[in-house]
Design a protein around this nucleic acid. Structure first.
Length: 254
DNA sequence: TGATTGACTCTCA
DNA sequence: ATGAGAGCCAATC
């Protein structure tokens, strides 16, 4: 750890004459400039998490710390130093969130465009164990028809898991692609209890008892008794059959 | 400004 | 069923 900090500070010290005491620089960097990072376990395995004063900026698979720090500077233009005692509570919070607990973690998405931020906010609200299509995310974000653009946002999601982009799937109920690998997406969703095979081909479900249809993984849909469950391939089919969209999971525009 | 790109989504053989 | 092709939207250069 201390060795790594040394490297980081050396890089930060461009313009500082050799031999100068770096102590004051350390303090200045910690007080006003540097973001911090730490390593923590996650469903994707060990990851590095970086955060600034506004919140988490980046989550990525843990590799060589120096590489992470270097890439971070290239991408965010910010210096990165290992988290210390002061960040202990924050680190535990992030660890809990990554472990799947419903803990609020502040995110710093300042660098993203308004559309990208809206998409991130929508995706963040998809509960564990549930999935939603790209097209639905687009509509919820205020840009119906922008499903492909949503895919582009997901592909560059700086904070995977914290914004659960693995829960965004294709409209036909198949998992679709994922930055780390489609297999990884399937594994994560299985771990969360998503019945992928049941979803594929009929990602919507209705029950005559209420006349409502849902995304098949909506918490309401999952309570439908098997004998009452009517699967649907698309919202249009469910509407044609006389069902109305669930107000919780909003499978179609009202 | 215009062309290109792509974790999408339809339609039609 | 399955795959090619076209349409689409926001970002990027």
């Amino acid at each position: 750890m201390s060795k790594m900090a040394g490297n980081t500070l050396r890089e930060a010290g461009e313009g500082i004459s050799p031999g100068r005491d770096l102590g004051p620089l350390v303090e200045r960097v910690l007080e006003e400039g540097a973001d911090v990072f730490f390593r923590v376990d996650s469903p994707l395995g060990p990851v590095f998490v970086a955060a600034g004063s506004r919140g988490v900026t980046c989550v990525d698979r843990a590799g060589i710390p120096e590489d992470f720090v270097r890439r971070y500077r290239e991408r965010f233009g910010r210096l990165l130093v290992p988290a210390g005692e002061r960040e202990g509570g924050f680190v535990r919070r992030v660890a809990a969130a990554l472990a799947g607990r419903r803990v609020e973690v502040p995110l710093d998405l300042e660098r993203m465009t308004p559309f990208q931020r809206r998409v991130m906010r929508v995706v963040r609200g998809i509960p564990r164990g549930e999935v939603r299509p790209y097209g639905w995310v687009a509509r919820e974000a205020g840009s119906p028809g922008a499903s492909r653009a949503v895919g582009n946002v997901m592909a560059r999601n700086p904070v995977p898991l914290l914004v659960p982009c693995h829960r965004v799937v294709r409209n036909d109920g198949t998992p679709g692609n994922y930055g780390f690998s489609p297999q990884e997406k399937v594994r994560l969703l299985r771990e969360e209890g998503v019945p992928l095979e049941e979803l594929s081909g009929s990602p919507y479900a209705a029950t005559p008892t209420t006349g409502v249809f849902c995304h098949a993984t909506c918490r309401h849909a999952r309570r439908i008794q098997p004998e009452n469950r009517i699967p649907f391939r698309s919202p249009a089919d469910a509407l044609d059959a006389g069902f109305r969209p669930c107000r919780v999971c909003r499978p179609a525009a009202v």
